[in-house]
């Protein structure tokens, strides 16, 4: 089942009197339960694509179709993705409040999810400032998935973390996906990370998709010169 269809998506940034095109005619689809990787060098338009898909970037043209409402996003910077004025419990309950879940169920689900992301009930009353980067990213992921979205767009979710924590967060994302038939659009500049978690991969260069294939084929037999260059650089 298709949960996301993107057709002929283009996007711009205003630059002086003209506009600078950052996405050019991007089309792809994402099936339920799949992890789609989006790789490319920094500045190639990956984050703009993520924001355009979620409706956070206005200056764009094309069609984006979501099969389910309220896709969520996990950001690169774990320091800015949690509200510093609220406890983790409040932050986890907020998506449920927005869809009108009752008080008791909100609390139960928040506590259960805290446990599942490896933070435990003692973190319920903590503020983001009291957590490490990895813990914050766990909390941010919990807040993204608590209302059971079908799609989570993860924009470089492990790039700001050190390698051991990266591994833990990737495992957590994989585990949440197994249980909840979630789909991810997983954005990264790091091919090693993408290889570990993605089923299919889109390679992006200068605002265009230059190659798309399933992970094993892409790594074994890259076709586009840019993909080859990326793979060589990663080794």
């Amino acid at each position: 089942m298709r949960i996301l269809e993107v057709e002929h998506l283009s996007a711009w940034y205003p630059s002086g009197r003209t506009r600078r095109q950052v996405l050019e005619d991007v089309s792809f689809t994402l099936d339920r339960g799949q992890v789609l990787g989006l790789v490319g060098e920094s500045g190639c338009g990956k984050t703009t694509l993520a924001r355009a898909i979620l409706g956070l970037h206005r200056a764009c043209a094309g069609v984006v179709r979501h099969a389910f409402p309220r896709p969520q996003m996990v950001f690169q910077d774990p320091y800015g993705s949690l509200n510093p004025a609220h406890t983790l419990l409040w932050t986890l309950e907020e998506p449920l409040r927005a869809i009108g879940t009752g008080r008791k169920e909100r609390r139960d689900r928040a506590m259960e999810l805290l446990d599942r992301v490896g933070l435990g009930p003692e973190y319920a009353g903590r503020y983001p400032q009291e957590l490490s980067g990895g813990q914050r990213q766990r909390a941010a992921i919990a807040a993204a998935v608590i209302a059971r979205p079908a799609l989570v767009v993860a924009d470089e979710p492990v790039s700001a973390l050190d390698v051991t924590v990266q591994r833990q967060i990737l495992d957590l994302l994989a585990e949440l996906k197994r249980d909840d038939s979630l789909s991810y659009l997983f954005i990264s500049h790091d091919l090693n990370v993408v290889y570990q978690i993605c089923d299919r991969i889109l390679v992006m260069d200068k605002g265009r998709i230059v190659e798309e294939n399933d992970t094993d084929t892409l790594f074994a037999a890259p076709k586009h010169p840019f993909t080859k260059k990326l793979l060589e650089a990663a080794e």
């Binding site: 969520q72 996003m73 950001f75 004025a85 941010a140």
Partner: peptide, 20 residues
Amino acid sequence: NYIQSARLMGVSHGRILTAH
């Protein structure tokens, strides 16, 4: 980012201003 997240969750502008 946490305000962007709140928007994605469907939290209203009024609630974002007062509660977030």
